[in-house]
Amino acid sequence: MSLSINGRRVALTGAAALTAVLALAGPASAHTEVEADKAQALAENVILTVVCEAESATAGFREVRVVLPEGIAPSDVTLEQAPKGWQLKTTDDGYVVGGTPLKTGVDAEYKVKIRQLPDVEEVAFKTIDTYSDGKVSRWIELPKGGEEPEQPAPLLKLKAAAPGAKPISPSPTASPTPSPTPSVTATPSESGATAAAADTKKDDDGTPMSLVVGGVAAAVLVLGAGAWLLTKRRASAGS
């Protein structure tokens, strides 16, 4: 009797353990993961490694679309490494990496550089995988109430920002501080170039050089003619 009870207990315990293992393994059997070489808030030029696990038995990955978290602009992402033939294109809310479909069962792995991570504790990179046969997997769900979602979005936990770290300008073309007033003194080379350009266009008062040269030539002719007439009159009076 005691052996029967003990056997039942062992069986129930084993079944519960197996159920727990399957429950934990289910969502992780095929999903997307993201890692960073500098998982720290406000870190700059961070390399993210993204791995999308293949879950289709009949088709390979064609593209991976990512919705960026708040604080990371699409223009702040550049492609560092990807499967052969794959390229990165930005979207309004993130980016797409894709190209020639991969072989069936091959994971899609690529690396991107992030200009700067936001000042938060964790960031979510919602990912949508598309296969060559049109099948779509959406890893976009966030944890709620402590429960693990069935299709969780890749999460990256960040350490606190380093002392003195500050957010950089949102755009690479924007200057964080006002630019100094340009100097009005030209260098010798600049002066020569400016003078050469002025010779082919206008002089200092805005008059075209062709008119100036023509005016000088006309004045010389007038003076020459006047001198000739004056000399002729004096010759006539003397005679």
Score class of each variant (00 low, 15 high):
Ala39Trp: 02
Ser75Thr: 08
Val216Pro: 00
Gly238Lys: 07
Asn45Ser: 15
Asn6Ala: 15
Val123Gln: 09
Lys89Trp: 01
Asp205Ser: 12
Ala174Gln: 09
Lys159Ala: 15
Leu156Ser: 09
Leu223Lys: 05
Glu147Pro: 01
Leu12Arg: 06
Asp92Pro: 02
Ala39Arg: 04
Ala237Val: 05
Met1Trp: 04
Pro149Ala: 11
Val77Glu: 06
Gln40Pro: 00
Ala36Pro: 04
Ala186Leu: 15
Ala196Glu: 08
Ala217Ile: 14
Ser2Ile: 08
Leu221Trp: 05
Lys38Phe: 00
Tyr110Val: 07
Leu22Glu: 11
Ser239Trp: 00
Val120Tyr: 00
Val21Pro: 00
Thr194Cys: 01
Arg62Gln: 14
Ser210Pro: 00
Ser210Met: 04
Gly164Leu: 00
Gly192Tyr: 01
Ala219Ile: 05
Ala28His: 08
Ala124Gln: 04
Ile168His: 08
Lys126Met: 10
Gly14Leu: 13
Asp129Leu: 12
Gly14Gln: 09
Ala20Glu: 10
Ala28Ser: 15
Val77Ser: 05
Val77Gln: 04
Val21Glu: 08
Ser191Asp: 06
Leu68Ala: 09
Thr91Lys: 10
Gly215Thr: 10
Ala57Gly: 15
Val10Ile: 15
Leu24Asp: 14
Thr177Phe: 08
Arg9Met: 09
Phe125Asn: 05
Val77Ala: 06
Arg9Thr: 09
Ile5Phe: 04
Thr90Arg: 15
Lys202Arg: 12
Val123His: 01
Asp204Pro: 01
Pro167Ser: 12
Leu22Arg: 14
Pro180Met: 07
Thr19Arg: 05
Val220Asn: 07
Lys232Ser: 13
Ala82Tyr: 03
Ala174Tyr: 00
Val96Gly: 09
Lys84Glu: 14
Arg234Trp: 02
Ala82Asp: 07
Gly26Arg: 06
Ile47Val: 15
Gly238Ser: 07
Ala36Tyr: 03
Thr187His: 06
Leu22Ser: 10
Ala124Lys: 03
Arg233Tyr: 06
Leu211Ser: 14
Ala197Asp: 10
Ile47Cys: 00
Asp76Trp: 05
Thr173Cys: 04
Cys52Arg: 13
Phe61Lys: 03
Pro27Gly: 07
Gly134His: 09
Ala73Trp: 02
Thr194Arg: 14
Ser29Glu: 08
Lys135Phe: 07
Gly98Met: 04
Asp93Cys: 01
Lys201Glu: 11
Tyr95Glu: 09
Gln40Arg: 11
Ala28Val: 11
Val96Thr: 14
Ala160Tyr: 02
Thr185Lys: 07
Ala30Trp: 00
Pro149Arg: 10
Lys135Glu: 11
Thr231Leu: 11
Thr100Met: 09
Pro152Trp: 00
